[in-house]
Amino acid sequence: MGGNEFPTTQNTWIGQRVHEGGGGRAAVNQHVMRVYAWPLQVYFRGTRDRWLGEPEDIVHGFFADRLAKPGFFSDWQKSGLRLRRWLMNGFCFYLSELRHARRKTASVSLIPESVEDETPTPEEQMDRAFAVAIVRQAMEQAYEQCRSEGLGEHWQVFLKHHYQGMTYRALAGACGVSPARAAVMARTVARKFRRSLRELLARDGAGPDEIDRELESLLEITSHA
């Protein structure tokens, strides 16, 4: 693979890992499966292809088939698409292939003639699922960082304030720290979470100047759920 296929300005993490080959490529595949498996399953559930099988099996089949292709990620980079869109397009082709293969063998009764319109669309459902998946992944990364740095208490304060909505004053009573200290502890973890989430969006293909816009777009999608 040529070194110019992944310019340093974009997709740095994925580009570098793929360029390493072997273990690097495995790390990329692992990242893709962790972050995008669930959004693709949600997408699949929203389509008329649900008769093809269990969402988890179908998505695993897609990953096994496509992620092994040598040019999969360099083709994505050339496309200029967000990685989730690239995966969704690839998944559609994969479903189409499965459909043709299964129609030859499936009994007619298994194949739906028509499916009622779905609202929201599978694409919208996938975007919502993607938003939840990357928040989840960023929280896991922030948690792991806190754990390795001995900041378990900070993590709890962050979670109770930003996730459960406890005020700093209430936290002070529950955790035995001052409200001011609780605010700093939450802030410390929030910085780690923010960094992780923005890095995950960069891996999805957003350039440094596009990340805030991408976040606003995901906020728009999830807030209208």
Partner: peptide
């Protein structure tokens, strides 16, 4: 589960919305 239950509960879309807004740098 990769995290203990008390470390990170399940996320709803409403939770994700709240957490996403934390990451906007302005």
């Amino acid at each position: 589960p990769s995290l203990p239950e008390d470390a990170l509960p399940e996320l709803t879309e409403a939770d994700a919305t709240r957490m996403l807004s934390l990451a906007i740098s302005g």
